[in-house]
Design a protein around this nucleic acid. Sequence first.
DNA 1: GACTATTGGTCAGGTTACCTGACCAAACAG
DNA 2: CTGTTTGGTCAGGTAACCTGACCAATAGTC
Lengths: 159, 159
Amino acid sequence: MSSVIDPTPPYVGYSLRVVWQWVWELNMAAATRAGYDDVNPAHVSLFRYPGLDGYRLTDIAQRMQITKQSVHQLLGHLESLGYLIRETDPGNRRARLVRLTPKGRGLQEVIRRQALDAERRILDILGEDRGEQFKKSLALLVDEITADGEVGAHDAADR
Amino acid sequence: MSSVIDPTPPYVGYSLRVVWQWVWELNMAAATRAGYDDVNPAHVSLFRYPGLDGYRLTDIAQRMQITKQSVHQLLGHLESLGYLIRETDPGNRRARLVRLTPKGRGLQEVIRRQALDAERRILDILGEDRGEQFKKSLALLVDEITADGEVGAHDAADR
DNA sequence: GACTATTGGTCAGGTTACCTGACCAAACAG
DNA sequence: CTGTTTGGTCAGGTAACCTGACCAATAGTC
Protein backbone atom coordinates (compact mmCIF):
# COMPACT_ATOMS: atom_id res chain seq x y z
CA MET A 1 0.00 0.00 0.00
CA SER A 2 2.14 2.86 -1.17
CA SER A 3 0.94 6.29 -0.23
CA VAL A 4 -0.66 8.66 -2.68
CA ILE A 5 2.51 10.64 -2.40
CA ASP A 6 5.50 8.62 -3.39
CA PRO A 7 8.19 10.48 -1.58
CA THR A 8 11.31 9.74 -3.59
CA PRO A 9 13.40 10.83 -0.65
CA PRO A 10 15.64 12.32 0.40
CA TYR A 11 13.66 15.50 0.40
CA VAL A 12 15.44 18.76 -0.19
CA GLY A 13 14.36 19.98 3.24
CA TYR A 14 15.82 16.91 4.83
CA SER A 15 19.08 17.29 2.96
CA LEU A 16 19.34 20.95 3.82
CA ARG A 17 18.91 20.10 7.45
CA VAL A 18 21.50 17.35 7.41
CA VAL A 19 24.10 19.51 5.75
CA TRP A 20 23.36 22.52 7.89
CA GLN A 21 23.50 20.43 11.04
CA TRP A 22 26.83 19.06 9.98
CA VAL A 23 28.23 22.59 9.58
CA TRP A 24 26.72 23.62 12.88
CA GLU A 25 28.20 20.68 14.74
CA LEU A 26 31.61 21.41 13.25
CA ASN A 27 31.08 24.95 14.49
CA MET A 28 30.33 23.94 18.07
CA ALA A 29 33.15 21.43 18.01
CA ALA A 30 35.60 24.09 16.84
CA ALA A 31 34.55 26.38 19.67
CA THR A 32 34.92 23.68 22.27
CA ARG A 33 38.22 22.51 20.84
CA ALA A 34 39.56 26.06 20.98
CA GLY A 35 38.81 26.15 24.69
CA TYR A 36 35.51 28.01 24.68
CA ASP A 37 33.74 25.32 26.61
CA ASP A 38 31.72 27.53 28.93
CA VAL A 39 29.23 28.41 26.22
CA ASN A 40 26.29 26.37 25.00
CA PRO A 41 24.68 26.23 21.55
CA ALA A 42 22.29 29.08 22.31
CA HIS A 43 25.22 31.32 23.19
CA VAL A 44 27.27 30.38 20.17
CA SER A 45 24.33 30.92 17.85
CA LEU A 46 24.33 34.58 18.86
CA PHE A 47 27.83 34.87 17.44
CA ARG A 48 26.78 33.65 14.02
CA TYR A 49 26.86 35.94 11.08
CA PRO A 50 26.73 38.90 11.36
CA GLY A 51 27.82 38.57 14.98
CA LEU A 52 27.28 40.67 18.08
CA ASP A 53 29.83 43.45 18.14
CA GLY A 54 28.24 46.88 17.86
CA TYR A 55 24.65 45.64 17.79
CA ARG A 56 21.82 46.49 20.11
CA LEU A 57 19.78 43.92 21.99
CA THR A 58 16.73 44.68 19.89
CA ASP A 59 18.61 44.14 16.61
CA ILE A 60 19.79 40.78 17.81
CA ALA A 61 16.36 39.74 19.00
CA GLN A 62 14.88 40.57 15.62
CA ARG A 63 17.62 38.73 13.76
CA MET A 64 17.32 35.63 15.95
CA GLN A 65 13.53 35.75 15.92
CA ILE A 66 13.29 35.49 19.69
CA THR A 67 12.11 37.95 22.33
CA LYS A 68 14.18 40.79 23.70
CA GLN A 69 13.87 39.19 27.11
CA SER A 70 15.51 35.99 25.92
CA VAL A 71 18.35 37.88 24.32
CA HIS A 72 18.71 39.92 27.48
CA GLN A 73 19.21 36.77 29.47
CA LEU A 74 21.69 35.23 27.04
CA LEU A 75 23.70 38.44 26.81
CA GLY A 76 23.70 38.51 30.60
CA HIS A 77 25.30 35.07 30.64
CA LEU A 78 27.87 36.04 28.05
CA GLU A 79 28.65 39.22 29.93
CA SER A 80 29.19 37.41 33.22
CA LEU A 81 31.38 34.90 31.40
CA GLY A 82 33.52 37.75 30.15
CA TYR A 83 32.70 37.58 26.44
CA LEU A 84 31.26 41.07 26.15
CA ILE A 85 30.23 44.24 27.86
CA ARG A 86 27.27 46.48 27.19
CA GLU A 87 27.93 50.17 26.99
CA THR A 88 25.51 53.02 26.52
CA ASP A 89 25.14 54.18 22.95
CA PRO A 90 26.56 57.70 22.83
CA GLY A 91 24.09 58.63 20.13
CA ASN A 92 21.03 57.28 21.94
CA ARG A 93 21.20 57.11 25.68
CA ARG A 94 18.45 54.51 26.10
CA ALA A 95 20.26 52.05 23.88
CA ARG A 96 23.21 49.89 24.88
CA LEU A 97 25.70 48.56 22.41
CA VAL A 98 27.31 45.15 22.69
CA ARG A 99 31.10 45.32 22.72
CA LEU A 100 33.09 42.12 22.50
CA THR A 101 35.97 41.69 24.91
CA PRO A 102 39.20 40.08 23.70
CA LYS A 103 37.76 36.75 24.83
CA GLY A 104 34.63 37.43 22.83
CA ARG A 105 36.60 38.44 19.76
CA GLY A 106 38.57 35.23 20.12
CA LEU A 107 35.44 33.14 19.96
CA GLN A 108 34.10 35.23 17.11
CA GLU A 109 37.27 34.60 15.17
CA VAL A 110 37.12 30.86 15.78
CA ILE A 111 33.57 30.79 14.48
CA ARG A 112 34.41 32.79 11.35
CA ARG A 113 37.41 30.60 10.61
CA GLN A 114 35.28 27.53 11.01
CA ALA A 115 32.69 28.93 8.63
CA LEU A 116 35.35 29.35 5.99
CA ASP A 117 36.68 25.90 6.71
CA ALA A 118 33.24 24.36 6.28
CA GLU A 119 32.94 26.19 2.99
CA ARG A 120 36.28 24.75 1.94
CA ARG A 121 35.19 21.23 2.83
CA ILE A 122 32.02 21.59 0.83
CA LEU A 123 33.97 22.74 -2.19
CA ASP A 124 36.33 19.80 -1.73
CA ILE A 125 33.45 17.36 -1.75
CA LEU A 126 31.64 18.86 -4.72
CA GLY A 127 34.64 19.89 -6.73
CA GLU A 128 35.44 23.45 -7.73
CA ASP A 129 32.93 23.95 -10.54
CA ARG A 130 30.03 22.17 -9.00
CA GLY A 131 30.82 23.77 -5.66
CA GLU A 132 30.75 27.30 -7.01
CA GLN A 133 27.50 26.54 -8.78
CA PHE A 134 26.10 25.26 -5.50
CA LYS A 135 27.08 28.41 -3.67
CA LYS A 136 25.52 30.56 -6.35
CA SER A 137 22.28 28.64 -6.18
CA LEU A 138 22.18 28.96 -2.42
CA ALA A 139 22.81 32.69 -2.62
CA LEU A 140 20.06 33.04 -5.18
CA LEU A 141 17.64 31.20 -2.93
CA VAL A 142 18.57 33.37 0.03
CA ASP A 143 18.00 36.49 -2.04
CA GLU A 144 14.63 35.32 -3.19
CA ILE A 145 13.54 34.21 0.27
CA THR A 146 14.61 37.29 2.16
CA ALA A 147 13.27 39.58 -0.57
CA ASP A 148 9.78 38.18 -0.10
CA GLY A 149 10.24 38.70 3.59
CA GLU A 150 9.12 35.15 4.09
CA VAL A 151 11.66 34.50 6.78
CA GLY A 152 12.02 36.67 9.82
CA ALA A 153 9.19 38.98 8.95
CA HIS A 154 6.36 37.57 11.01
CA ASP A 155 5.54 40.25 13.49
CA ALA A 156 8.35 42.69 13.27
CA ALA A 157 6.26 44.51 15.85
CA ASP A 158 7.62 43.16 19.07
CA ARG A 159 6.92 39.56 20.02
CA MET B 1 40.69 47.73 10.46
CA SER B 2 39.55 44.72 8.48
CA SER B 3 39.91 41.38 10.18
CA VAL B 4 42.54 38.88 9.20
CA ILE B 5 39.68 36.86 7.85
CA ASP B 6 37.80 38.75 5.26
CA PRO B 7 34.47 37.05 5.44
CA THR B 8 32.92 37.61 2.01
CA PRO B 9 29.56 36.69 3.41
CA PRO B 10 27.06 35.25 3.14
CA TYR B 11 28.67 32.12 4.41
CA VAL B 12 27.43 28.81 3.11
CA GLY B 13 26.44 27.81 6.63
CA TYR B 14 24.38 30.94 6.99
CA SER B 15 22.68 30.39 3.65
CA LEU B 16 21.92 26.78 4.43
CA ARG B 17 20.31 27.85 7.65
CA VAL B 18 18.21 30.55 6.02
CA VAL B 19 16.92 28.23 3.32
CA TRP B 20 16.30 25.39 5.68
CA GLN B 21 14.48 27.64 8.10
CA TRP B 22 12.31 28.88 5.29
CA VAL B 23 11.33 25.33 4.38
CA TRP B 24 10.73 24.51 8.02
CA GLU B 25 8.51 27.51 8.58
CA LEU B 26 6.49 26.62 5.50
CA ASN B 27 6.19 23.18 7.02
CA MET B 28 4.85 24.40 10.36
CA ALA B 29 2.56 26.86 8.59
CA ALA B 30 1.14 24.09 6.41
CA ALA B 31 0.41 21.96 9.49
CA THR B 32 -1.31 24.81 11.28
CA ARG B 33 -3.25 25.83 8.19
CA ALA B 34 -4.48 22.27 7.78
CA GLY B 35 -5.91 22.41 11.27
CA TYR B 36 -3.19 20.60 13.21
CA ASP B 37 -2.76 23.45 15.64
CA ASP B 38 -2.39 21.42 18.81
CA VAL B 39 1.17 20.42 17.99
CA ASN B 40 4.32 22.46 18.48
CA PRO B 41 7.60 22.42 16.50
CA ALA B 42 9.10 19.68 18.64
CA HIS B 43 6.17 17.42 17.86
CA VAL B 44 6.14 18.17 14.16
CA SER B 45 9.86 17.56 13.91
CA LEU B 46 9.25 13.96 14.96
CA PHE B 47 7.12 13.52 11.85
CA ARG B 48 9.90 14.59 9.51
CA TYR B 49 11.42 12.11 7.16
CA PRO B 50 11.33 9.18 7.62
CA GLY B 51 8.44 9.70 10.03
CA LEU B 52 7.13 7.77 13.01
CA ASP B 53 4.94 4.96 11.81
CA GLY B 54 6.37 1.56 12.64
CA TYR B 55 9.41 2.85 14.49
CA ARG B 56 10.47 2.17 18.05
CA LEU B 57 11.16 4.89 20.59
CA THR B 58 14.86 4.07 20.57
CA ASP B 59 15.12 4.40 16.78
CA ILE B 60 13.53 7.80 16.93
CA ALA B 61 15.75 8.99 19.75
CA GLN B 62 18.83 7.99 17.80
CA ARG B 63 17.60 9.66 14.63
CA MET B 64 16.70 12.87 16.44
CA GLN B 65 19.86 12.83 18.52
CA ILE B 66 17.99 13.29 21.78
CA THR B 67 17.48 11.03 24.77
CA LYS B 68 14.96 8.23 24.94
CA GLN B 69 13.35 10.04 27.85
CA SER B 70 12.68 13.13 25.77
CA VAL B 71 11.17 11.09 22.96
CA HIS B 72 9.11 9.21 25.53
CA GLN B 73 7.62 12.47 26.73
CA LEU B 74 6.92 13.84 23.25
CA LEU B 75 5.33 10.58 22.12
CA GLY B 76 3.25 10.73 25.29
CA HIS B 77 1.92 14.11 24.25
CA LEU B 78 1.20 12.95 20.71
CA GLU B 79 -0.53 9.87 22.02
CA SER B 80 -2.76 11.85 24.37
CA LEU B 81 -3.56 14.21 21.49
CA GLY B 82 -4.68 11.24 19.43
CA TYR B 83 -1.95 11.23 16.80
CA LEU B 84 -0.64 7.77 17.54
CA ILE B 85 -0.78 4.71 19.71
CA ARG B 86 2.03 2.49 20.92
CA GLU B 87 1.55 -1.21 20.59
CA THR B 88 3.78 -4.03 21.68
CA ASP B 89 6.05 -5.37 18.98
CA PRO B 90 4.88 -8.92 18.28
CA GLY B 91 8.43 -9.98 17.45
CA ASN B 92 9.99 -8.48 20.57
CA ARG B 93 7.78 -8.11 23.58
CA ARG B 94 9.89 -5.45 25.32
CA ALA B 95 9.62 -3.12 22.33
CA ARG B 96 6.63 -0.98 21.45
CA LEU B 97 5.93 0.18 17.92
CA VAL B 98 4.51 3.56 17.08
CA ARG B 99 1.33 3.32 15.02
CA LEU B 100 -0.17 6.46 13.56
CA THR B 101 -3.89 6.96 13.95
CA PRO B 102 -5.90 8.43 11.05
CA LYS B 103 -5.28 11.85 12.59
CA GLY B 104 -1.56 11.14 12.72
CA ARG B 105 -1.53 9.92 9.14
CA GLY B 106 -3.32 13.09 8.15
CA LEU B 107 -0.59 15.24 9.63
CA GLN B 108 2.07 13.02 8.13
CA GLU B 109 0.50 13.47 4.72
CA VAL B 110 0.35 17.24 5.09
CA ILE B 111 4.03 17.31 5.97
CA ARG B 112 5.00 15.12 3.01
CA ARG B 113 2.97 17.19 0.62
CA GLN B 114 4.55 20.34 1.96
CA ALA B 115 8.01 18.85 1.49
CA LEU B 116 7.25 18.23 -2.15
CA ASP B 117 5.80 21.70 -2.49
CA ALA B 118 8.93 23.27 -1.03
CA GLU B 119 10.96 21.25 -3.51
CA ARG B 120 8.80 22.59 -6.30
CA ARG B 121 9.26 26.17 -5.16
CA ILE B 122 13.01 25.76 -5.04
CA LEU B 123 13.02 24.40 -8.57
CA ASP B 124 10.86 27.31 -9.66
CA ILE B 125 13.31 29.81 -8.22
CA LEU B 126 16.43 28.16 -9.59
CA GLY B 127 15.01 26.97 -12.87
CA GLU B 128 14.83 23.37 -13.95
CA ASP B 129 18.48 22.75 -14.87
CA ARG B 130 20.09 24.66 -12.08
CA GLY B 131 17.55 23.23 -9.65
CA GLU B 132 18.29 19.64 -10.55
CA GLN B 133 21.98 20.35 -10.26
CA PHE B 134 21.37 21.83 -6.82
CA LYS B 135 19.48 18.77 -5.67
CA LYS B 136 22.23 16.51 -6.93
CA SER B 137 24.86 18.49 -5.09
CA LEU B 138 22.86 18.38 -1.91
CA ALA B 139 22.38 14.65 -2.21
CA LEU B 140 26.09 14.20 -2.79
CA LEU B 141 26.89 16.20 0.32
CA VAL B 142 24.44 14.19 2.38
CA ASP B 143 26.00 10.96 1.14
CA GLU B 144 29.47 12.12 2.00
CA ILE B 145 28.49 13.44 5.40
CA THR B 146 26.50 10.46 6.55
CA ALA B 147 29.07 8.04 5.16
CA ASP B 148 31.75 9.52 7.39
CA GLY B 149 29.31 9.18 10.23
CA GLU B 150 30.04 12.78 11.04
CA VAL B 151 26.46 13.55 11.85
CA GLY B 152 24.48 11.53 14.31
CA ALA B 153 27.28 9.22 15.23
CA HIS B 154 28.53 10.82 18.42
CA ASP B 155 27.86 8.27 21.08
CA ALA B 156 25.69 5.70 19.47
CA ALA B 157 25.94 4.19 22.95
CA ASP B 158 22.85 5.50 24.63
CA ARG B 159 21.54 9.05 24.40
C1' DG C 1 18.83 -25.15 33.65
C1' DA C 2 20.67 -20.87 36.21
C1' DC C 3 23.43 -16.17 35.77
C1' DT C 4 24.88 -12.26 33.95
C1' DA C 5 24.83 -8.61 30.32
C1' DT C 6 22.31 -6.12 27.04
C1' DT C 7 18.31 -3.94 25.18
C1' DG C 8 13.75 -1.32 25.17
C1' DG C 9 11.29 1.43 27.90
C1' DT C 10 9.55 4.13 32.02
C1' DC C 11 9.47 7.10 36.38
C1' DA C 12 11.23 11.04 39.15
C1' DG C 13 13.32 15.20 39.30
C1' DG C 14 16.43 19.09 37.63
C1' DT C 15 18.06 22.70 34.23
C1' DT C 16 17.43 26.41 31.09
C1' DA C 17 16.11 28.47 26.83
C1' DC C 18 12.36 30.18 25.75
C1' DC C 19 7.84 32.65 26.72
C1' DT C 20 4.12 36.55 28.65
C1' DG C 21 3.13 40.55 31.33
C1' DA C 22 4.34 44.63 33.76
C1' DC C 23 7.28 48.26 34.11
C1' DC C 24 10.90 52.30 33.63
C1' DA C 25 13.53 55.89 31.20
C1' DA C 26 14.95 58.18 27.08
C1' DA C 27 13.37 60.03 22.65
C1' DC C 28 9.99 61.78 19.72
C1' DA C 29 5.41 63.98 17.83
C1' DG C 30 1.73 67.12 18.46
C1' DC D 1 3.82 70.31 28.23
C1' DT D 2 1.57 65.67 27.01
C1' DG D 3 0.98 61.47 24.94
C1' DT D 4 3.27 57.76 22.19
C1' DT D 5 6.97 55.11 20.68
C1' DT D 6 11.38 52.88 21.43
C1' DG D 7 15.19 50.35 24.02
C1' DG D 8 15.72 47.80 27.80
C1' DT D 9 14.85 45.33 32.33
C1' DC D 10 12.44 42.60 36.17
C1' DA D 11 9.40 38.78 37.71
C1' DG D 12 7.50 34.62 36.97
C1' DG D 13 5.83 30.61 34.09
C1' DT D 14 6.22 26.74 30.51
C1' DA D 15 8.13 22.85 28.33
C1' DA D 16 11.81 20.69 25.86
C1' DC D 17 15.47 18.96 26.94
C1' DC D 18 18.68 16.59 30.46
C1' DT D 19 20.67 12.88 34.34
C1' DG D 20 19.97 9.04 37.33
C1' DA D 21 17.55 5.08 38.93
C1' DC D 22 14.83 1.42 37.81
C1' DC D 23 12.00 -2.67 35.65
C1' DA D 24 10.94 -6.33 32.16
C1' DA D 25 12.15 -8.97 28.19
C1' DT D 26 15.86 -10.85 25.45
C1' DA D 27 20.40 -12.77 24.43
C1' DG D 28 24.90 -14.85 25.65
C1' DT D 29 27.57 -18.11 28.61
C1' DC D 30 28.79 -21.78 31.63
